[in-house]
Design a protein around this nucleic acid. Sequence first.
DNA 1: TTTTGAGTTGTTCGA
DNA 2: GTCGAACAACTCAAA
Length: 433
Amino acid sequence: MGGAARWRLAQSLRALETRLSAIGASLLLRKGQAARIIPEVARESGASDVFWNEIAQAPHQAIEHDIANALRELGVDVHSFDGDLLAAPATIRTKDGRGLRVFTPFWRRIQAMGALPYPLPAPRRLHPGPNLSGETVESLKLEPARPDWAGGLRETWTAGESAAQKRLQHFLKSGLAGYAGERDRPGRDGTSNLSPHLRFGEISPRQVWHAAQFAAAERRALAGDADKFLSELGWREFCRHLLFDVPDLATRNLQPSFEAFPWREDEAALRAWQRGRTGYPIVDAGMRQLWHTGVMHNRVRMVVASFLVKHLLIDWRQGEQWFWDTLVDADAGSNPANWQWVAGCGADAAPYFRVFNPVLQGEKFDPDGTYVRRWVPELAQLPNRLIHHPWEAAPLELASAGITLGKTYPQPIIDHRKGRERALKAYEKVRAG
DNA sequence: TTTTGAGTTGTTCGA
DNA sequence: GTCGAACAACTCAAA
């Protein structure tokens, strides 16, 4: 687990602890091998039943198998569920038994399942278990101490089930109408922001699915926006199913021809990208939002990823690792699947010649520069006309905005046109096998 | 087995 | 300023 996700896990555990104690139970934390610890706790507590949600990924499935066997030997009843996904990956197969690699037919298959099982209500009361010894959230050392870089994360996020429900209700009430267009505007609050909650199991995709269906059924006009929103849940699902089939998704090119791709080693460029100092305002804004808050707007994720992989020709795995370490919603499926998608080697991937132009993307989706001004404050005084390409400002315009290019804000580390041409040339090498 | 139609999110160029 | 075509085949899923 990456650094930001570890921090987020600590908040999630605290929220769960509070919630459980409010209904008469307590949270027991232990660290180590699950196949040993869970049966151990079952024995110490005299448990009659153990419940969990399955994790449809290679190492976890084997672990769950071992846990179930050990528990059955103790005479404990085992109950497992697919609550972390809309459908179990083993149930969505082509005729020849393979996982689907194109999103549209995949999503149609999920939709064809009809109404998904409805989530069960939470228990009102739980009985306290016996007093067993365990770790505390602090002793797990999930949070950074020296230096404490989590200040921005703390300002941004509230963890836990009730926060997740509040966010969902807020989104359905004020974000669903117009979602299909607003979701692309990084300067606005047009997305659901549910991804960290989904990542840590504080809300289930089925809860989200049912809530959105219900909202759309109540107001016909929302049907299009609700479809768009649900298809985003579909992409999470698609990526997880892909991971189920391809356990090494984060390290291996799905398209074998990409093994021959001429990636560049460029520590300085990688660092400039990570720190938000590429000289392209929309890219830098995204990278700084990520560092500060642990998330990045969806539209901007595509722009910064395209920039790293195409303009800088740096291996998508470097980007995947940085996102993995810095995202509070880092998901084992979505993160590598989407990086591969941008790079052009993934499932249903973007064609190789699609190179995002960071200036056009900025002008199109952040036309008034709200997003850039928020995350790159040293450019805040520039007029909208120049906010996405400060290097084209006249000396006087830069001076009156208090900017010295190369000092207060970097020059572009690569020229767009040159970068694009170099990328297209590099991709020639992996074309057609 | 073969065929057919389709496939998240763009950019550039020239008419 | 607007619009359509080119960019490049390839692979997938289902008939």
